[in-house]
Structure formats: structure tokens, C-alpha cells
Design a protein around this nucleic acid. Structure first.
Lengths: 124, 124
DNA sequence: CATATATTTGCAACTGTGATGCAAATATAA
DNA sequence: TTATATTTGCATCACAGTTGCAAATATATG
């Protein structure tokens, strides 16, 4: 995978955002650009384990940086995706315990929690 | 909201499925039908709190029946959406504790857990 | 450093999902 | 049973995301 100027600027936009970004969010922050290239860039980043997609029913997909240990093969995010009801941003929040999602009936390998509420910034 | 034959058959398909269904799943089980009417029916059911949408990144939206206490206004599903890695079905599973998603920084009003693993049926 | 090979980009055109306006059909209320 | 409200079907549209292909750019090799 080549580190082209276009890819670096897309990565920079995602990295420097405090919350998960939609395709539109990225487009707003890019100068003039090609939509096809952007979609392909996002696809590449997803495949490489550089970013992960967050989908919340009714909303567009959003993207956020992966953990350091993510890569082409391992791609696990057992954290909380919190959507703030006030500002509508989506944040990734680390969770301490993961065992609660298991019981004797099914087996959970990985999961995300999709939540709605109020984020730290909006509470103050 | 009128209980028309079309709506009743869509509802029956969703109700009688053991796992969450996509639009395509519904279409396969309907006879000849109008796509627009189906989309409008799903929208109506969502608004009325009869069904809820489940979105998992990379997959189409799926729909499942709501809890008894859901309605036009209240629409809360604090349960586990478990996607089986073997059969790819998505199941709603009740969770006992909900407090783990809260901490002193943010406030969670409602959430879903999106999980991947192996479902009860596929484990046996 | 120059050249060969692989990767990425831009363009044009396409696909599929879901939405909209409107008139006909059906359901509900009086 | 007639008037009113709701739902349906049709035609058409809007838009997100994809594909094939040729030009441009990046990387590897001698």
C-alpha cells in the first residue's frame, strides 16, 4: 500500500477528529477531490485494519481509527460506540469488562456496544 | 394505522422468523408485491414501535420485532444483537445487567451490543 | 539514475436502494 | 351507505457506492 498525498490527507482528517467521521465529513474537509478515489481509499483502510466502520441504525456509516493491534487479519474492537443525543457525534470509549456479553447458550468472540446518551463534552 | 392484508403478511414474516430479517428476506417470502409499499410498510412499523432496525457494519439493515413496551414514543432495546459467524443470522438476546455501559464521564440512556460469535443452534 | 513493474487515480458509465408525487383503490368513521 | 382518511401502485427520480479502463504516479531493480 503506497502512502500517497491523497491517502495521507484522508488519514489526517480521520485521525484529527475527536469523534467518528462520515464520508460527508471527510469530503467537507478535503479540497477538490474524486469521490471514487475516496471510496477506494476508505475500503483500503478498512481492509488494512487502519480504520473501522461504525454503523448505527438510521445513520450513515462512520469511520474511526483502529487500535494499535489491528491489522489486515485481526480487527477487534470491544469498546463502546457512544452516540451523543445532544451533538450526535459518535465516540469510541474503552470498556473495562467484556465477559458480561457471554452466557452458557451462545459464544461471543467480538462485539460492539451501540449506545445513545450524552457525551462528556455535552454534559458540561 | 390500518391492518391491511399486505401489512399483516409482512408482519407475519418478521414475527415467524427466529432471527432478524433483511428487506430481501422479506421479499423472498412475499408473493408478487410492490417494492415501494414494502419500504413504506417497514417505515410505518418502525415509527409505530412494532419493529426495530439492527445495523451491523458491512451488512444490510435487518429488522426484528420490538418488546411489548415499545410504541410510537418509547423505543428502547437494551439487548444483545448477536450475529453468528457460522450461519450469519442475527438474534436478539436479553441481557441481565445494563449498568456496565455507564461511567462517570458520559451518560448512556440506551444502547445495543453488536456481537459476533456462534449462536446456540450452531454450537450444537 | 534510468527504466520496468506495480499501484493508484480520474473519468464515464452503471447498479441498486430507497424516496416522492399523484391518482386509483381500499379501509374506517359518520 | 356515503364521506373522509389512509394505503397502494405506477412512473420517475435521487443518490451512494461500484466497475472497467486508460493515464498518471509510485516503487523496485539493474
Amino acid at each position: 500500500m503506497s502512502e500517497t498525498p491523497f491517502r495521507l490527507s484522508v488519514l489526517d482528517i480521520i485521525q484529527s477528529s475527536h469523534s467518528a467521521v462520515s464520508v460527508l465529513d471527510i469530503e467537507k474537509n478535503l479540497g477538490e477531490h474524486n469521490r471514487v478515489t475516496l471510496y477506494r481509499t476508505i475500503k483500503t483502510f478498512l481492509e488494512q485494519g487502519i480504520i473501522h466502520a461504525i454503523s448505527i441504525a438510521g445513520d450513515e456509516l462512520r469511520y474511526a481509527m483502529c487500535e494499535d493491534n489491528c491489522g489486515k487479519d485481526s480487527h477487534v474492537h470491544n469498546h463502546l460506540h457512544l452516540q451523543c443525543l445532544t451533538c450526535e457525534s459518535v465516540y469510541c470509549v474503552d470498556l473495562p469488562a467484556t465477559s458480561f456479553v457471554n452466557n452458557s447458550h451462545h459464544q461471543v468472540d467480538s462485539f460492539e456496544v451501540h449506545a445513545r446518551g450524552t457525551c462528556e463534552a455535552c454534559l458540561n
